[in-house]
Design a protein around this nucleic acid. Structure first.
Length: 154
DNA sequence: GCCAACGTTGGC
DNA sequence: GCCAACGTTGGC
C-alpha cells in the first residue's frame, strides 16, 4: 500500500475543513504541476495513506491523516474562467489537470516541520529536501509507520 | 516581505 | 534543443 504526503494551504482547505466536509472527503483541486499530476494519475489508488500537510501558514507541518478516496479524474476548476486555477489550454477532450478525492480520517497533533527535521529516521523524506516544492510526494512505508507512531505516542 | 529554488515559457 | 527570463512555491 503506497503512502503520500499532500500539501494543502489551511486557508483554503485545512484538516478541519476536510473533516467537516460531506463524508470527510474533498476533491484535491488546484494541482498544476505535471509531476504531482502524474503521481495521481499513475500511482495513486483508493485506500492509499495520506499525510495531510499544512503549508504556507504560520506553523507548517503534518496536521492529520487521510486516505485516497478516488482514482484520478479531471479537475473541473481548469475549465472555470473565474477560478484562479483556470487553464485556457485545457479542453474537455484533452484535460490537462487531474485530481483525486481525499478522505480525512483523523486530525492529529501538529507535527511541525522542525520536528520532522529533527528525526534521523526521516532524513530522506522528499518534503525535507532542499528546494522541495512538489505538493504531492511519496512517503515510504518506513517513514509512514514512524510518523504515525510518533503521532499516536501522545 | 524576502529570497532561494525550481518549473515553465518562448525567442532563437 | 538551448537557455535566459519570468513566475511560483513556500519557509522564514
Amino acid at each position: 500500500m503506497p503512502y503520500w504526503l499532500m500539501k494543502s494551504e489551511p486557508d483554503e482547505v485545512s484538516i478541519d475543513d476536510a473533516l467537516a466536509a460531506h463524508d470527510s472527503t474533498v476533491p484535491w483541486t488546484g494541482v498544476r504541476n505535471y509531476q504531482a499530476r502524474n503521481f495521481m494519475r499513475d500511482q495513486m489508488r483508493i485506500g492509499d495513506g495520506v499525510l495531510f500537510y499544512h503549508s504556507s501558514c504560520a506553523e507548517p507541518g503534518i496536521a492529520g491523516l487521510a486516505e485516497v478516496a478516488s482514482t484520478a479524474y479531471p479537475d473541473p476548476t481548469q475549465y472555470d474562467p473565474r477560478s484562479k486555477y483556470h487553464d485556457p489550454k485545457a479542453t474537455q477532450e484533452n484535460p490537462r489537470w487531474l485530481l483525486v478525492d481525499v478522505r480525512a480520517t483523523q486530525k492529529t497533533r501538529l507535527m511541525p516541520l522542525p520536528e520532522l527535521r529533527s528525526y534521523p529516521e526521516l532524513a530522506d523524506m522528499q518534503i525535507l529536501k532542499r528546494g522541495n516544492r512538489l505538493s504531492i510526494t511519496p512517503v515510504t512505508p518506513t517513514e509512514w509507520r514512524f510518523i504515525v507512531k510518533q503521532l499516536k505516542a501522545d
